[in-house]
Amino acid sequence: MSLDLGGPAQPLLTVQGLVKHFPVKGSGLMRRRVVRAVDGIDFKVKKGETLGVVGESGCGKSTTARLIMKLLDPDSGTVLFDGQKLGHELELSAYRRQVQMVFQDSYASLNPRLTIEESIAFAPRIHGVTARAATERAHALLNRVGLDPGRFAGRYPHELSGGQRQRVNIARALALEPRLVILDEAVSALDKSVEAQVLNLLLDLKDEFGLTYIFISHDLNVVRFLCDRVMVMYLGKAAEIGDTEAIYERPGHPYSKALLASMPKANPAERMDEPPLAGDPPNPIDPPSGCRFHPRCALAEPVCSQSEPPLLQLGGDHEAACLANMSGSGHSLAPSRAP
């Protein structure tokens, strides 16, 4: 089956300079306007870890997922899977067996005309598994995600609850025995008590099958619980990447800080008086110049609208893209140049 090629030190997924722009419908003939959905991101996913991707609508997190899944073709950039360049050393069909995805909408991601077992058995059948073996695998997987195959295998998606359907989708994603699973807001639509059950399941499956996750979510509490590292995205760019605890304890980007502060605390004694961030997330069609966050940023200075900050190491592999951290950037809070 799928072999571990480069050993544990080799990242499972390496994304370099990924760019995807969409043309805006009805834009002028002279100047074609584009949505800069993903505008140059680089990151690595280590073997066996869970990378969280957080950000608000329009930040490009779902587009990133679809680019990694090759459901969309990037304008530029490369994807390496276990050191192998996709499309060159690694063929798409071989790659697809190793990378799977679970979507947010548990209902839309199941074919309403197929029974649960047919949905799960579909992918193995495509890859040449016999009907009997594929059905057996579907039943074993149903069992594993906590659904009794005797009760559920022959039923249709609309007869299941949201939580049950999402379990089916997880089983379906595991049917090809992938190494990387992308969870795109996979628990966001579930009720809290069901969400907790599914999160526990995801943890167990990860251990059992040695999986690596990319977990895309807008819920920072869930990300903190589940993820080893986090990438914070803002308008198609990575604002900050690093270990979860580092980011949650010492956010290096003002946006991460504001995002964390915006989570409502379940304690009436800790009510906020001022929103941490004013304004709406801007439109990715015409992103602001310089640092894209500067119009909403509390630390913004004239320099922020002029030069775009690169991702800068803050310690370990904690990186943030903010001029206030960058010595010699011209920002008044920037540390003086190291001697």
């Binding site: 029974t115 069992n143 009794d148 195959p149 022959g154």
Partner: peptide
């Protein structure tokens, strides 16, 4: 790795079938 799946053969005797769409 994931081959544990086939080992724990959970082949139920009866699978409850819902009436199909048609």
């Amino acid at each position: 790795m994931a081959l544990t799946l086939t080992r724990e053969k959970a082949q139920p005797a009866i699978v409850l079938r819902s009436p199909g769409y048609w």
